[in-house]
Design a protein around this nucleic acid. Structure first.
Lengths: 271, 271
DNA sequence: GATGAACTCCTTATGCGGTAAAGTACTGAC
DNA sequence: GTCAGTACTTTACCGCATAAGGAGTTCATC
């Protein structure tokens, strides 16, 4: 399920996101008092998504937790899409709080901390990885996360366009890799099959079905022989381990590359 | 929609993926001759997904194109999940063919070409971005794509674990960034609203709803003033431009970082 | 040439999903 | 008391994957 943000009434959604015009009550209005609130609906929806995944997030499921029908939620949010937008930015507040505390460190440490916070945040709220960036939510907390890293990179001496590029590269590197980790967990929960069990079944089939694997894929075979795909820690699922190690590597490499772009001194790069 | 691979019968799926035991007919079997084939179903499904997106990929839609009912497809594939696995690896053959042709170039050029092929491939088949890696498909063409880059990096002098890490970093960087591009196109098609139109509506709301934006986000405001978010080419949607520029930046930075990790003797060896 | 097994494909039904439409009950203003 | 506006419910529609069972087709065998 991929969710496109910002389909609903822009004015309404943005006002909710930025809590604009949220004054309690000017005139008491006729009719029954609302027993729920937007915040309560959003909180509950986040709880559903955290616990059971984005696929299990339905208006019915949220309503059920609140002891209401699915339709009653439409009193508070215009559509499921708008609800997801609100959930996304609401969750990002947590990440924003964490990364804002790291901005005083040296730029490499601060950037690494930023990436690690994003990683852990994504594992806590894996459903955020399924919200499309094609129509950015443009909520305040998403901007705070951007601003935090931009500030760090700006202080380090990176130019405006490079800050934008570095942010995008880091964000997508983390997001892509943590997605594998998160999906591995979700797959296990959804299918009831542990990763090693699944892998065992598949790889034994692979040998049977591709007896010429080592001649078709000599480099991969050599890598496997040299332990490139070994499970270092039996307690942790292999895919999560691999994804984390890949992040460590990619992050360091990327930071090295960014560092070269800080100082205007020195040699020109060759192609 | 996120699809977990490998739920079906492992033996059956793997045999289909690797075309194992696909001999035409040993003994003619009783019963009507199948009028379709696995390949035809997979081709048709890929066409549906290419044209209308993963969300529009339903057994009904595929059946309809073939003049059959949805249920008739279950004669050829065990489930929709298995169909997606087959689609994924089938599509990857195209990418594998392309990248295998680039392996003779110097490592930086070959790696850049690999990333660009992956980029263009993902835009041609954006639905591949929605197939989860938690339960890798393990098809032959996916392995060919891996082997191609592994070979290039091995020749450049990178060690086995670093090859794995570099592959993962590059793959996820490209995949994450191209996803934004692909989703921008899909969002436009799905919502009927052009990106600039959407952006205009939202950003005018943003000013209204967050009048203190520039004091809350000084770095971002300064970046915008310096043109970090300017649209260089009015003909191309901004998000696609930005994603591409970010890839250029991230790829160069990553390659710089990888270059530092090459074996000291590391000179490109031929064959 | 009839029979039964194996096979393809169909119709039907179940249980999910978002949400449109219309109805009910409550609350405050007049 | 009446009316309007609101919160919430029930019902309904359409689309999804796929389970279950049935109908029609073709072969090996008798």
């Amino acid at each position: 399920m991929v969710v496109y943000a910002g389909q609903g009434d822009a004015r309404r959604s943005m006002a909710l996101l930025w809590r604009h015009g949220a004054e309690p009550t000017e005139h008491p209005t006729p009719g029954p008092k609302p027993e729920l609130s937007v915040d309560l609906v959003v909180d509950t929806a986040v709880a559903v998504a955290d616990e059971d995944g984005m696929a299990a997030l339905s208006m019915r499921a949220v309503g059920e937790r609140l002891g209401r029908s699915a339709m009653s939620l439409y009193t508070y949010v215009a559509s499921k899409n708008e609800l997801v937008d609100l959930m996304y930015d609401h969750a990002f507040a947590e990440l924003a709080d964490a990364v804002e505390r790291e901005t005083d460190q040296p730029w490499r440490a601060a950037t690494t901390a930023w990436a690690e916070h994003l990683w852990r945040f994504s594992l806590r709220h894996p459903w955020t990885l399924q919200v499309s960036h094609a129509r950015p939510v443009l909520g305040p907390h998403e901007y705070r996360v951007f601003e935090s890293l931009a500030l760090v990179l700006h202080r380090a001496g990176l130019g405006p366009s490079d800050i934008r590029n570095a942010f995008g590269s880091l964000f997508n590197l983390v997001r892509g890799l943590v997605r594998t980790s998160a999906e591995a967990r979700q797959a296990q929960a959804a299918t009831g099959m542990a990763e090693d069990e699944w892998w065992y079944a598949r790889s034994s089939q692979l040998e049977e079905v591709a007896p010429d694997f080592d001649t078709r894929f000599p480099t991969l075979t050599a890598m496997a022989r040299d332990g490139a795909f070994a499970n270092d820690d039996e307690d942790e699922p292999y895919l999560e381990q691999e994804a984390w190690q890949t992040l460590r590597f990619g992050l360091e490499a990327l930071l090295d590359g960014i560092e070269r772009r800080l100082a205007p001194t020195g040699h020109t790069r060759r192609d």
